[in-house]
Simulated assay, not measured.
Amino acid sequence: MDTITHTLFGLTLYGTVDKKNMEKKEKRAFLVTAVGASLIPDIDVISRLWDTTGQYQMWHRGITHSIFLTPLWAAVLFLICMAIFKTKDKRLFFLGWLAVVIHNTSDLFNAWGTGYLEPFLNTRITFGTIPIVDLVFWAIMGTAFILSRKNKQKSPYYFRMAWVFMTLHLIIQTTQGFLLYNQYDEKYDEVALSANFVPWTYSVIAKQDDTVTIFQDNLFQKEKEQYVLVSKEDADLDYLFSQRPEAKTLYQWSPFVVVVDDGKRLGLYDPRFYRDGQSFLYEYIER
């Protein structure tokens, strides 16, 4: 998910906490824990500062998003709150742990994916059933905020119900994506999903031999063919990788790629992010 959504997740988690009998410093500790833990896995963006070998694509959403590191991040936030707010409430640790688990798990459902099982499995796990910016999530959390403002006494209830509805949305959206994926998986060598901003609508990226076809589809209408892309499977990728290490990283990171070799440029791109004639995830060298 994007940074705004993760921040909203943290604020919504904070909203579920009953704060009637808390002092101001306790409330601040819970707020910092909920929001901080909802954002801390993305600390990996600082790897750009020392990345000289084109590995950022693997580092971002890599080990910092591992499910096995979630209690460590929770402990870090707990210690920070102990130092700043002088509180040792154990609930802070469990709130932080839950926030990190939600961050890492929600990212699994985007096309970008995560290294959820690193360091034991380096495969980037992605379901592609939820867009990175999901406006349904935003609407649910916004509704909970508005209702909580009107009735502060029931504020935790509204935010807890928001999590129930967001979970239902995730289940419904992912189930539909899974059913669509299976329909295409029977006919193509490789298939990937990328959820659209419109709920229950997906881009289905299907590869057969050297041809990649991108469809727009959902369970309630006939699929619409959007793009047909031809991949130059016999291109010299070793040469490309030697000249541009980022290309090798993208090749390893993506479920599959489209290779371009037109005499002027040699490169590859991830077709899951193909829009209006180009993908924003690409690596090229000039001939």
Rank of each mutant, 00 (worst) to 15 (best):
I43H: 09
Q55Y: 11
S47D: 02
G62T: 06
A34R: 08
V35P: 02
F68P: 00
I43Q: 07
T33N: 08
Y56K: 02
S47H: 06
A34C: 15
I63R: 03
S47F: 13
I63G: 01
P41I: 12
T64F: 03
T52S: 10
G36W: 15
A29N: 03
A34I: 11
K24V: 13
Q57R: 06
K20L: 07
S47W: 09
T64S: 13
W50Y: 14
N21D: 15
D42T: 04
T53I: 08
Q55R: 07
H60K: 00
Q57W: 04
P41R: 10
T33H: 06
I46P: 01
K24S: 13
L49W: 15
H60Y: 02
D42Y: 08
A29I: 08
D42F: 09
T53V: 11
Q55I: 09
T33M: 13
T64H: 01
D51Y: 14
V45T: 14
I67L: 15
S66M: 02
T64W: 03
N21F: 10
D42W: 06
R61W: 04
E26I: 10
T33E: 04
A29L: 08
T64I: 02
F68D: 00
D42R: 02
W50K: 01
K19C: 08
S47K: 02
R48H: 11
N21V: 11
Q57D: 05
P41E: 10
R28H: 12
F68W: 12
A29M: 08
K20A: 14
Y56L: 11
